[in-house]
Design a protein around this nucleic acid. Structure first.
Lengths: 239, 239
DNA sequence: TGTGTAAAGTTATCGGTGTAAAGATTTGAT
DNA sequence: ATCAAATCTTTACACCGATAACTTTACACA
């Protein structure tokens, strides 16, 4: 690393365009960070290796020293994204340490939707894009599983709180049910499918134009249906 | 049209590459049909105007006589797709004309997932792709609303069958809840998110490797939770 | 029955993209 | 000190969406 510092000391040719090192030193990490930064404001569709390389200050094809192709970069971005989602969900629960299981299910649902809105393009990269099956990396699955485990634990506690069977199968099915509901709602809101569909004509205007209170109340009702459903159906959930 | 037929009679230059007409005559329709055919086997990401034009037998830029750009073509493909989805759902109900409301909710859920699997790339085009807000066409919304209306009617009947309030608000919220659940499950299965997440470790293997019976049973349980939830929460659903 | 205008399709071309191949530079182990 | 491996650059190619200027055809109107 001493040698690396020496490299930084080497002077550049032009004063305007100073390129102190031939070797970037941390290119792979920089590219992933830059990709995540890019997705803060622009969609995955608009992401290109060339602009990424330019922003990092490297030649267009330098990327290929660290990623086999564009797909592999996206794959690795996704792993980061899933980790970020898990941390986001954990943070939401940490803000209310003594929350009951049922309350935690609620908090997770809200947090999930918030993440999808705040990191909209990243969320799309996680759930509206899939690599070919054979290219999926175990690290990515690992990162993804964490999120669901958090939900699963909340569900199990909720089942216990209500004196319901909380063995593997009912816990799995209830988790999947809750996740599907929240994920579906999130996607439908994000893609604008709800506008003009369910509520157009039934409400005064589009869903996104409703007051936050109205949106909040609808969300609460959906989760009420979900939780009441789990309570009512739990004893029927046998493999 | 007589003149058009005359045009077809004009001989071509080479015998291998015969181009009988300068004017295609039905290009817009052909392009949309070809795009839908393309999505039968390949993803939206891989769809290009150039290959579309080539398949239809027309120059690369002829597309621009009928579509402002690639986005507009996709927009119109989506309108077709939503119509196809509505028809698919209607057809599923037509096969069981005397089904109860609750039964129809079930049938719609199954049909929705089947459509998403059979027309996977088209489904992605409908729900994982969105044009800029200002480019949305009313025809597309119209076509999309039809599907939800079918579900909404089933839900209303189901509410009536159970002596529950079936006015606008509870019907809307229940519809949204059911749609979200089915849509979320569909997306999670399609993107492979479920593999390795909820069931990895809790079941013997990945979800898609489960027997159809097992998958069916899980689906049934999810819908049981949903329907029981609506029944249990219906009286709480006030605006 | 011409005839001219607008619609429909073509060719040429531009900037941008992913990526393969070959060369230049740096690093680090021997 | 040297040399191979890793890293980055240069060059090049095929493909893509899109624009502009053109040719061809269709059709309304005289």
């Amino acid at each position: 690393m001493v040698l690396q510092q020496q490299a930084y000391l080497m002077s550049s040719n032009t004063p305007t365009e100073r390129k102190s090192t031939y070797h970037h030193g941390n290119l792979r990490e920089s590219l992933l960070a830059e990709a995540l930064a890019f997705l803060e404001s622009e969609s995955l569709e608009g992401l290109s290796l060339r602009t990424l390389a330019k922003r990092v200050g490297v030649s267009p094809t330098a990327v290929y020293s660290h990623f086999a192709d564009k797909v592999e970069l996206i794959i690795d971005v996704r792993t980061r994204g899933f980790t970020m989602l898990s941390e986001y969900l954990s943070a939401a629960l940490a803000r209310e340490p003594d929350a009951s299981g049922e309350r935690r299910v609620y908090l997770l649902g809200i947090a999930y939707m918030h993440f999808a809105q705040e990191k909209s393009n990243l969320f799309d990269t996680l759930f509206s894009w899939t690599p070919d099956f054979e290219r999926i990396k175990p690290e990515c699955i690992e990162a993804g599983v964490d999120s669901v485990e958090i939900l699963r634990e909340a569900i199990i506690d909720m089942l216990h709180e209500n004196g319901l069977p909380a063995t593997d199968y009912p816990a799995s099915v209830s988790s999947l049910s809750s996740w599907s509901l929240i994920h579906g709602l999130t996607m439908l809101v994000k893609t604008g499918s709800i506008e003009g569909a369910v509520f157009c004509g039934h409400w005064s205007s589009d869903f996104s134009e409703q007051s936050p209170e109205t949106q909040q109340r609808v969300f609460d009702h959906l989760l009420t249906i979900e939780i009441e459903g789990i309570k009512a159906a739990a004893h029927k959930l046998t493999p």
